[in-house]
Design a protein around this nucleic acid. Sequence first.
DNA 1: CAACTGTTTTTTATCGAGAATAACTATTGA
DNA 2: TCAATAGTTATTCTCGATAAAAAACAGTTG
Lengths: 311, 311
Amino acid sequence: MPKQNNVFKEAYNRCLRLFETMDALPSEPELATRLAISRTTVRAVLKRLAEVGVIEWDKRRKQLLRRPEPADYFPDGETESLSEIIERNFMRRILAGDRRAGMQINELELARDIGVGTSAVREFLIRFSRFGLIEKRPNSHWVLKGFTREFALELTEVREMFELRSAHAFLALPAAHPAWAELDRVEADHRRLLADFGRRWNEFSELDERFHRLVHSASRNRFVVDFYDVIAMIFHYHYHWNKTNEQLRNRVAVEEHLDYIAALRSADPARLEASCRAHLKSARETLLASILPEGPAEAAAGELAEAPAAS
Amino acid sequence: MPKQNNVFKEAYNRCLRLFETMDALPSEPELATRLAISRTTVRAVLKRLAEVGVIEWDKRRKQLLRRPEPADYFPDGETESLSEIIERNFMRRILAGDRRAGMQINELELARDIGVGTSAVREFLIRFSRFGLIEKRPNSHWVLKGFTREFALELTEVREMFELRSAHAFLALPAAHPAWAELDRVEADHRRLLADFGRRWNEFSELDERFHRLVHSASRNRFVVDFYDVIAMIFHYHYHWNKTNEQLRNRVAVEEHLDYIAALRSADPARLEASCRAHLKSARETLLASILPEGPAEAAAGELAEAPAAS
DNA sequence: CAACTGTTTTTTATCGAGAATAACTATTGA
DNA sequence: TCAATAGTTATTCTCGATAAAAAACAGTTG
């Protein structure tokens, strides 16, 4: 079974969503641009829509016959890409389940458990390795280094270094730079969120990433920007699984962000430094608090795993 | 033709080299440890050695029949691993050959040109992408971002941030830490190199990496340490292909290293800062000098390549 | 004739197979 | 008995095949 047509299915769903509020149907190239897919897939989607009776399609005469209904959509599970499936499964395993450091990771077993080919798992692991949580023993297995306290400290150390530098670089951006406009929008979204916090507090995670990526982008340095992928990945799963005090934590973070944004606008480096540091400190503490304290048993397991590698 | 047996061949060659000066043949597990391979491969090697008549092998009675001759060795080229072959080819293409930024990279074409399977190329590109020189358009091609001036500046910016911090962390290492002993050895090797510089100056590249990795290791931060892989890769190919003033550059660098080492020993943060900065500055200038100045044509090419990505 | 549609070619994403290798288990002989 | 060896099983690494998706090419139409 080579390649699932999840690009098609996902595009089909997004197309339906589009047609719920759209009357004049756009041309094939325009749809392709809108959905960020190739025209080949657009035509497949249109063909199916015509078959199902949502639209009438004769060359360049396209007409909406009826509004899409919930039953028209493909189920969520089928639109997920293979790498997303693998990532979700893998992260659940190492963050939630049996996450002993030093544990071996078996490509074949992972592939069988998730129900995908080994190549997909291999490529995922290679991509994932840049996050520093796993390490390859050539011609042999992968070693799980574990989402440990050390990992969190190393991560936040670099994060703080990069973000402080980026924040200062932000100050130096010319007033006409689009980042300032985006900062306005991000701030407005923060205030909107705060106004209805009781209901929408769980939207914070997304906003958090958007704000910090904006700050990092001011560094104009691909290594700094790319490093945020590591942070985003960790925080994504962290937000996803660690629910203790979540609402309060998020509320504090929103306030800190607003202070941080004000500091960026103040053009006062000292104030920015203080505000940025304060926020980074509480982010670090939150992350550290979510990590189970490790006993010496864990360290021993790590050493045990180290030994057979040499032989 | 699945999988080249280059681990076997390389182990075979190293085994021959071992047997040139060895009389009592060791056991299988011991040989495996010595050659850092599995016993299975050791047995394959022994089997072949017996077939060729270098040894006699009956269960646990092994005997050397004759000394290995040059003709017994496998040719060197065949001992290179697949990923090394791909890396070398790829780097030659983008650093030496047609290195227009924005250029598309075609997996299939690369695989055909190099003469390997597509999976090997895919996996290489995924691994290589963390160096920030290429970027994937999902479901589509890779884009070469190019070894440009911007790349070099972004690389050195992070490098300087990390190395300064690591150098200061080095000062704080306890006197008993093994890094100080390694620093002694590295310094001694620098002096030895300097004593016979006219002949051995091209050994500097290796020593350079060893020294800087030692400094970075003091950070005790996997992201800092791993980042040196990017630097090492770039400098490796840079040393390999840019031969202008090479000897002089290396000599200057050796002197700077010695000053840097002395500064580490001085326990004087201000002196260390100055010495480290001076060396990093000249490293940056050397790297920048090796990059061809880019005209506006290059930037235009980059923009052109950006456009079709959306469609 | 520019934008669109129809058709064909190329490339990517994924799986399964098989050689090379590692890991595990049983055996042997001093 | 126990360390070294022999035999067996499991896993990684690589390739080739195939469907999905993208891209290129070739006609159409207002």
